[in-house]
């Protein structure tokens, strides 16, 4: 019995397969639709005017970044459970996208708060949470970079991703309560109670779908590359692990 069975079951294609290319194009097209809707079709907000148009991209990107962190930890758990290299590949793909989407969320948040609140940074709970998550993801990649052995790297980064995921609810609560002195009173103030016009909801959903499709495309492409990389390693690995030696019985 072996611990790490080489998984040659479905060798990823060297060239990008057609369906994946089509998925990319579809994501791009939907993004175009989403941007058009956000810029030209959506009504301006009663309070925030045209600034609300940033919100569509900002919110979509933010949601996806949290989804990616969640999936990083899920694949991390799978790696710890089964020790299959491919799960680590999925985990990294998600972690990288989480980092990028979190960065985009931060940029979006700052762009949003500059004209509305006249400052580049506000201690908005969700923005603060995203900033902390960004820092945690940077830590994840620093740790990865310091470990050479692929299995130990996979194990330790899986552990880190679980710790990161578990921290999010606490970081959120803390950031939420941070602005107000008293925990209990802030819950209704975060805008979730505000009702949105149904046309705006539709535009938001289109944008979320576009971001999700983009994310899906990049993730699948990254996993494809990651698996090619892993297979290359595996092949080299098998060579350097040496031919079977004589059985010594003493």
């Amino acid at each position: 019995m072996t611990y790490r069975t080489p998984k040659a079951s479905s060798q990823p294609a060297l060239r990008q397969p057609l369906w994946l290319r089509l998925l990319g194009l579809a994501a791009l097209a939907l993004l175009g639709v989403g941007v058009t809707l956000a810029l030209f079709v959506s009504p301006a907000d009663v309070n925030q005017g045209n600034l609300i148009r940033i919100m569509y991209a900002h919110v979509s990107v933010a949601w996806i970044s949290f989804l990616a962190v969640f999936l990083t930890a899920v694949f991390g758990c799978l790696f710890l459970w089964q020790g299959r290299r491919v799960h680590d590949v999925w985990a990294v793909a998600n972690a990288e996208l989480a980092l990028v989407f979190a960065a985009l969320t931060l940029v979006g948040g700052m762009t949003y708060s500059r004209p509305t609140l006249n400052t580049w940074w506000t201690w908005d709970a969700k923005l603060t949470l995203t900033a902390l998550m960004f820092a945690l993801l940077v830590g994840y990649f620093i740790v990865r970079g310091l470990i050479d052995d692929p299995e130990r790297r996979g194990r330790v980064s899986a552990v880190v991703s679980i710790i990161v995921l578990a921290s999010l609810p606490f970081n959120y609560l803390a950031a939420e309560w941070f602005r107000t002195l008293h925990p209990a009173k802030s819950l209704a103030l975060d805008g979730s109670g505000v009702t949105m016009d149904s046309s705006m909801v539709q535009v938001l959903l289109v944008n979320v779908a576009a971001a999700a499709l983009l994310y899906l495309y990049f993730m699948l492409e990254r996993v494809r590359l990651g698996r090619l990389e892993a297979n290359l390693d595996e092949a080299q690995d098998t060579r350097s692990a040496g031919a079977p030696q004589e059985v010594i019985h003493v």
Partner: peptide, 27 residues
């Protein structure tokens, strides 16, 4: 424990710990 046998352990530790510990400090 996680950083015990990594390079740059001393400077790495606060970088990893503090973003997790924010709610504890704050609370």
């Amino acid at each position: 424990a996680l950083t015990a046998n990594l390079r740059a352990r001393e400077s790495l530790l606060p970088v990893l710990i503090f973003p997790i510990i924010v709610p504890v400090i704050l609370a």
